[in-house]
Design a protein around this nucleic acid. Structure first.
Lengths: 258, 258
DNA sequence: GTTGCCTATTGGCTAGGCCACCAGACCAAG
DNA sequence: CTTGGTCTGGTGGCCTAGCCAATAGGCAAC
């Protein structure tokens, strides 16, 4: 039964219409998702466990298969279940780690130092992989980006485009879909540090030199050297005004520029 | 009508059955999501713009309303659109700001080797950071996980929980929200390789030894050693049956140890 | 001008049905 | 006994058809 809304208080009518609290539009599939999560929690189900069959589940919940299917799509999108054709819906995560991913995506509260760490991890690996897997086309793209940087630096610009093109070319040369995806995710966060860094006097030239070293290592198919050069580069880049006074003291390099 | 798969090239047939390319099961709603995104991109739609009516859209795409509804649910879950009852589907984000979750939905094609690369990149960095930033509590958690592994291995189990607890403890010890988030994202993908690896005879003991080395480096606050040990560990783990014959020869790894 | 209703349009959801996929049982040929 | 096939029951994937409910906008009554 149940079906339908079973909803909730609409406009209370109470006061002088301050504003009907943006009345919630309870979608059935959302409620189903909730119930399924409850079910998982109550029964202590974990990764690998299977949900009941769609038909059965739909009947038990008193909803149509179509609506249940929507709920499953929602759960699949957030990586909670994996449904395969003749097999059924399989849990991928446990009950308590429900929506961490979701909330993580929603809250864009990442601090800069953390972003730098992530960038360092990803780009270092990307450089190494690029050195191993690059094709001639990849190399051409990298060197084209290098030339662009060169022109821009010579013209006294900050070479933002060149810098970005370079890193994108390297990412592509690594031929790793997953890493590329992760890079894209932190991409916009990186942008801030990039701009800041390249605005520092003398930095563009430094940066260009570093990029040349990286490119050379990739050209020579030397993964270790590429990784080292990239790590070195990121170190310098991360030493920007934005961070001064944040991690000021403590650890980190102290090595660096050229 | 058309409808249905309209699928794609399955096995290229090339070599001697290196492994049937992890055959993908293209869900219709995923394709629809893709087409809708294309539509948005092509027509340069942005936040506030409205999509055509469901019935119209479904007919135009040659799919049923039910399937289209699933696609809309998927888009809604990732915060791309907002659909209200008598009104229609409203775009919330622009064309190029689809976020990672989306691409994750669209391409369910993450190949194992790629996942390994990503894991290698992230965990290596995590280990290094953990060595730098660990607190006593972090260390205690790591060693507790180690003990759990030990008990499980001695009992002849696969120590899946111990393994996972260990890596989670290290991740926490690194104190990097962004890296943790990225790890979480590829977490479920990693699970496959983890299970596979720990099911190999003798592997749990090996794994335990490797973890001990990593833990020791973190205890001694030696980032370089921690990174090296972790990279080494991931190397071993990635050498699972799932991958044999895929990257068989060639490379593997090769970032900057030491 | 304001109010209130009416109706076309749009989503939400259900019902029922067909097809494809998977796994396990079963049987026959080697 | 082993191997290879077919059969069968169960499960998802999708579709068609249709009713219900919310919304917006026009129009009539006030």
């Amino acid at each position: 039964m149940t079906a339908h809304t079973g909803a909730d208080a609409p406009a209370p009518s109470a006061a002088g219409v301050p504003v009907p609290p943006r009345l919630s539009r309870p979608r059935l599939y959302e409620q189903i998702v909730q119930q399924l999560l409850d079910h998982v929690r109550v029964h202590g189900l974990g990764p690998g466990d299977r949900l009941p069959a769609e038909r059965e589940l739909a009947q038990a919940l008193g909803v149509s298969r179509a609506s249940l299917a929507q709920a499953l799509v929602a759960l699949e999108v957030v990586g909670m279940v994996h449904v395969r054709h003749g097999e059924g819906a399989t849990l991928l995560r446990g009950a308590d780690e429900e929506d961490v991913l979701l909330s993580a995506v929603r809250t864009h509260q990442d601090s800069l130092p953390d972003v730098i760490d992530a960038r360092s991890a990803l780009e270092t690996k990307l450089a190494a992989l690029a050195a191993e897997r690059r094709t001639e086309e990849d190399l051409a793209a990298i060197e084209a980006a290098l030339e662009l940087m060169e022109r821009q630096v010579r013209a006294g610009e900050r070479s933002l485009e060149g810098d970005q093109a370079f890193h994108e070319a390297v990412t592509r040369a690594a031929h790793s879909a997953v890493l590329a995806r992760l890079m894209k995710e932190i991409g916009e966060l990186i942008l801030e540090t990039r701009i800041e860094s390249l605005s520092t006097p003398g930095r563009p030239q430094d940066s260009l030199d570093k990029h040349r070293v990286i490119a050379a290592a990739i050209r020579d198919r030397d993964p270790a050297a590429a990784a080292r050069a990239m790590a070195d580069h990121i170190d310098v880049v991360s030493d920007v005004a934005l961070l001064r006074g944040r991690r000021a003291d403590e650890d980190h390099d102290g090595e660096g520029r050229t």
